[in-house]
Design a protein around this nucleic acid. Structure first.
Lengths: 114, 114
DNA sequence: TGAATATATAAGTATATTATTATATGATAA
DNA sequence: TTATCATATAATAATATACTTATATATTCA
């Protein structure tokens, strides 16, 4: 039935994290490639601390993980997390967001830090 | 790709409605059978207005619909809504909640109003 | 018609959420 | 070492959320 043993409570708390436009887009972007914080700051028109706080929530829940590369910190999906299949399942229904990264690249802002 | 043309913004707002334990359970229960308000009041240990307000949010978003049957108002999934496939997709990952209705029935509280 | 039942709405309150600005930390490069 | 860049954290404020109690509305039934 539920192959991942996710309770209603656990699902609700994961959905709450995904139920924010910024975080949902972040996670969708991370579905296919790693990104660093400064890229998210460019993509979303919000302050850097705001992005940091969204990332912290996702990290605290084990949805994403961070990895320092030089002066940058890259985020990626934590595929080991037991809720990962559930998240993938939700993400599979969402439109691809890669055009946002492509736009970044075209404006030269992607290379600037990665 | 995304067979239902759901934007990230629309998905986030649907997920926000599902991201509450009470509403998520309500919707999961309605996946397989209609329920009336008084049943939800029995199932969840909250006040009747609280249930009414949850149902209103779901109804306003077109996720559920209501139908009066005598003095009771029954709620059911609005399968015509364009976000219905997305919701079904999420619900498919959640554990069945029917034991809650079975418990109601055993305690004689289900028949009382339906 | 009047009482009882089922549900919705209004108003108020406590808590949660999400942003902001200011500041701290840590890495790199001159 | 000092300046700069990238990120995190702290403090705060505005707004949203989810309850509660009180009350209104609509239906049924004696």
């Amino acid at each position: 039935m539920n192959q991942h043993q996710l309770s209603i409570e656990q699902a609700a708390s994961i959905l709450k994290l995904l139920a924010d436009k910024t975080r949902l887009t972040i996670v969708k972007l991370l579905e296919h490639q790693d990104c660093c914080v400064c890229e998210f700051v460019e993509v979303f028109q919000v302050s850097q601390p705001s992005i940091s706080q969204h990332l912290r929530k996702l990290r605290d829940a084990g949805i994403v993980k961070e990895e320092r590369r030089g002066q940058w910190i890259f985020y990626s999906m934590n595929t080991d997390n037991r809720v990962f299949p559930f998240i993938k399942h939700v993400l599979s229904q969402l439109p691809n967001q890669e055009e946002k990264l492509i736009a970044l690249e075209k404006s030269g802002k992607r290379i600037s830090c990665c």
